[in-house]
Amino acid sequence: MHMTYHDYAQYKLSDFLEDDSFVRWVIGADSRSNAFWQTFLVQYPDNEKVLREAASIIKIYRNQSSFTNEEHRDEVWKRISATIHKQSTSQTKVIRFPIYKVAASIALFIACTLILWSVLTKGTHTVKTAFGEVKAITLPDQSIVMLNGNSELTYKDSWNDDAQREVWIKGEAYFDVKHINIDTTHILPAHRFIVHGNGIDIQVLGTSFNVKSRRNKTNIALLSGKIEVSYTGSSAIASGGLVLTPGDYVEYAGQKLLSKKKLVRPHKVATWTVREIAFIDPTLNDIMENLQDNYGYSVNVEDQELLNLRIEGEISVTSVQELLALASSTLGIKIEESGKEIIITRK
């Protein structure tokens, strides 16, 4: 924040209304500045009146009715996908027929039936990715999950306010969880978001983090917010749940904590979400495991010793071919790729 308390002390009503950080704070877009404004009010109590006036004008203004057109959401979407579909075959324009309304009501009926069915049968939804594929998934609460290759995410079809939000993960995923807890002293079940991994549970209150659960090992990197990790089948308190803060990186083997460290640049662990392959000080083994897990390669090594070779520094490439070329030239070894098989030999 560039402005100082003293600067704000000179502010008139219209100045507050024009100030970027003030407006963002009032509309709740910038909770980090809560402390700043509270301190300001303590230091300059005389300015409280004008500050609150400015805030109330914005609040009252925002208290307007909103038009969401929710009932046509699916119909509009169907028109969009229909047009795109038609465009790929011919360039004819889509003409709207009343039949869309009929179709929409039939679709609505089917949707209702499906929802009812899934509630009754407690249906679950599973999204799987193939090797080398990255998928973006929007959960029922609008949280976003990026699923890396050869991974699987399962969640219940219907989420309601009485139940906690739960997902099950195999493989690797990046989570951006929607924060819906308002009062930290009064947490409702739906405010909780739990990720179930290999023997461990991660409890979240709105945050972004990366989970990788492969080869019986689970590692978690926290990018922002706060999460608590506990072992499946025991309450957090009983098992002494581990609370992570941003930058923390932990590795588990089943229910055993192997290591905990602080990452200098935690965002690096999620580079795969933009289809980038990245490593920090990797061994050849780290690279090969990644290619097996995410892309489905099989690896053939002449001498297992070679796997311990390490590349110092950061690697960031966009294709497997680029990665192999880089590894072979840096380590002075021969790496051949034939189909889905990688053969590593000495030069």
């Binding site: 509309i27 709740g28 877009a29 909770s31 809560n34 925002r62 924060h179 308002i182 009062d183």
Partner: peptide, 8 residues
């Protein structure tokens, strides 16, 4: 409030 939510 000390909330960290941006939900309006």
């Amino acid at each position: 409030s000390s909330s960290t939510s941006s939900e309006r």
